[in-house]
Each structure stands twice: as C-alpha cells, then as structure tokens.
Design a protein around this nucleic acid. Structure first.
Lengths: 213, 213
DNA sequence: ATTATTAAGTGTAATTTTAACACTTGTAAA
DNA sequence: TTTACAAGTGTTAAAATTACACTTAATAAT
C-alpha cells in the first residue's frame, strides 16, 4: 500500500556551490555569469535544481561536474536558505554546498559555456539573491575546518610543501603564522608524513614534500 | 515581468525538530507518536511540512508552537536530509532543527493530542526514517555549542546555580567535570553574572544564583 | 674551486591555559 | 550548642602556546 501526503506546498529545491580554490597565491572563489532569467548576466554561485530522483549531494556533484568535468570534488553541505522571496522568479529554497578544489595539479578545464571565473576571496563582486551570505557562511566554516580538521582542506595537490600548507592556512585564516610554530603544530597533529622527495622549484636547497596521512 | 522556472521536480519539504530539554536530572529529548501514515504510531521527531509562504525557521517555530504552545523556543538549523527513499510515502527532503527548551520554570503544557513524551537522551527508542541520524548530529552540535558558546544553551531557567550549569554540561558532554575548575572556567569566560540572590532549596548554606549576560 | 645567494629548516625560553587535588564556610535542623 | 550538608574556594604541576633568529643545503656566479 502506498501513501501520499496531501499537499499543494511542493516547491523547487536548488543547490548552490561555494567553490573554493587555492593556487599558492591566495584563496579563490569560482563564480559564474548567470545564464537564466531573472538576473541573467549577473555574477552568481554555480547552482542547479534538485531532481526528483537524486540526493542533494548528488545534485551538487552533478552541478560541479557540469562546470568542471571533475567527478570527485570534496563537498560539504551547509545551510538551507529559505526566505520566501529570495528568488524573485519563484518560491525556491536553496541548500548551500562548500566545494574544495585544488586548482593546480589536476588536468581539467572550466566548461566555457558558463563564463566562469576565479576571483580572489577578498575581492569578488556582489552576487545575486542571498549568495553573498552563503559565501560568508562557507568561509566561516572553512576557517573552522582549518583549525580542527586540516586534512579535510582538499585544496592542495597530493604532495605539498610546508610553505604551501602554511600559505593556505594564512589565506583561510587571514593572518600571518610563524614558520617554526606552524611546522611544530602540524607535526604534533600527526596528520602529514614527510616524503623523501623534495620540491626544487622554489629554492636552491629545496623543500620537503608532504602528504596527508 | 515575472519569470518562472520550468520544472517537474517540485517536492515536499519537511522540517523535523530535535527538541532537547533539561530538568536538572539529565538531558531529555521530546518525541511524538506519529499520527499519519506511513509508520503511524511509531516514535518520531516532531515535524511538519514547509508551507509555500513561510521560511524554514518559521515552519519549525509553527510546528513547535503547535506542540508546546510556546512562541519563542530557541532554534538552530542543522542539515537537510535528502535520501531519495527516506520517506517511503513520497519524495521529501527534511531540514532538521535543534530546539532547546527549559523544562522547569515555564508555564506550559504539551498538547495532549500529540502523545508526546520526554525520554532521557541515552535511552530513547528507535525512530522512524532517518530521525536517529538527525538526533546524533544534533547532539554533536550541542556538544560543540557547550564548548564554544555556552550562553546559547537555552536549557536552563533564567536564574540558575553553578551546580545546575555544571550538571547540564556534564549531561551534554557525558563526562564528570571538576567543580572548582568548572567555576573558574565559567568565570573567566565572562558569560554569567552572579546575583545577590541565593537558592536555598538545595542546601542549608544556599547557593548563589547566576544569570547569563 | 671558491664565494655569494637564497629560501628551508630548526630549538629554547616565557607565558598562558588546563588539570588535579581537599579543606573551610554558612546555615538550618536537631 | 552541636551536627550535618552542600557550597565555595586556591595552589601546584603539566601541557600548550607564543615569541623570537641563526644555521644549512644547494645552486649560481666569479
């Protein structure tokens, strides 16, 4: 026997992705020019609509794959946004996802048709709807993650130097960190192993490469 | 000009409330006997369906008011749950809310028709759907709150003793806490003020009452 | 071959925070 | 006046955090 709820209150559920990237210079956010009305042509988070037969996470993964071609982007669900008039076109609620993307060592390209662009995290445009709020929340969450579970910061290439890791932390936390204290801290946390390999590109001495455990 | 998205993927959005209470004995959770099919008669979180013209928070507040009559229950949004078959009746997603409720000093009554019951947090029944997962997540979040923003633990009467506060912490964190260290910690956190008033009910000496700042 | 250059790598001391631990006090009841 | 009982309080040791600057390894230039 199959039961159905009796409701005229069905609505469209969207997902919006706050896509963070890191390229050794600073923390970046990937934005797209909105392709549909309303607010067509304005900067926006990459998003899409939840289909009836997919989970929110699957939906976000699909959206990200469409934009980047990548299948295994690290994702974390954030809040749902549900102001009644958040989207002037129609009642929708949107579930935000934070996506972390290593910009360097993967072979991938942004799907051209989306007019996507990376912006520095401290200099990106005003976004549509409540998307700026979403970014703010995602950043807060990212800072928390850095403090508590740095191994989840999937923003670095598989092998990275201490300098890269520290630069990432500095970008996320928006502070300067002491070199010696940082290394000691990371080492006592037991989350990385030092490889025998060195990266010779940045100095004559070369710097050890690390991997997350 | 009004735009509409073109979509057959509208669906029902629910809210489910993890309602925590504290009565100086221990942490409790408020559950209801489900009144609709499927799974009618089974224990469940208190929930309801999001209406087209309300926000998720408003919806949760409405649901809580229906059950308790209270208007100003402290609420925090948690994750959305979206497994395709989480509710066998129909595709729904549900947004979980954590609600904190001081069981002692308010004048209120549980609406009888819901067959609601308080359970100790470490001895409550198996719930329908994914509700047990929701409770687990809510507990985790509550522990985090206790560590970082204890003034948000709206589970105590306005005036409370250090013993009450410590007992609450012990219940939430599921550990014993040292009396002296606890008092010192709370005092250095600058989140409470000690009143001149004493609660004489628990001892001959009486214990000071505190308020959150 | 020697020297210069450059970023990587490393240790110690001071301070702050946390954890462990037990006796004194104030009041009501006997 | 004494007894009983929970409330209230301080010190010491250990651990974590912060501040701080010189040495090292390798390449490039002479």
């Amino acid at each position: 026997m199959i039961y159905k709820y009796d409701s005229e209150d069905k609505l469209i559920v969207a997902v919006d992705c706050i896509i963070f990237g890191f390229d050794n210079e600073g923390l970046k956010i990937l934005l797209v020019k909105r392709a549909i009305k309303p607010e067509i042509g304005k900067w926006s988070l990459m998003g899409g609509f939840l289909k009836k037969d997919e989970t929110l996470t699957a939906s976000a993964k699909r959206v990200l794959k469409t934009l980047t071609g990548l299948e295994n982007i690290y994702l974390e669900q954030l809040e749902a946004y549900s102001e009644v008039n958040r989207d002037p076109a129609e009642r929708t609620i949107s579930v935000a996802f934070s996506a972390l993307l290593n910009m360097v060592d993967q072979k991938w390209e942004l799907e051209k048709s989306f007019e996507a662009k990376w912006f520095p995290i401290n200099a990106f445009p005003v976004l549509i709807f409540d998307h700026n709020m979403m970014v703010e929340r995602a950043l807060k969450r990212l800072r928390y993650k850095a403090q508590t579970q740095p191994q989840e910061l999937k923003l670095l290439p598989k092998k990275f130097t201490m300098l890269q890791l520290r630069t990432l932390f500095e970008a996320i936390l928006d502070t300067k960190l002491d070199k010696r204290n940082f290394t000691t801290k990371i080492n006592t946390m037991n989350i990385v192993k030092r490889l025998d390999e060195k990266d010779m590109s940045s100095s004559k001495k070369g710097s050890y490469l690390y991997e997350f455990l």
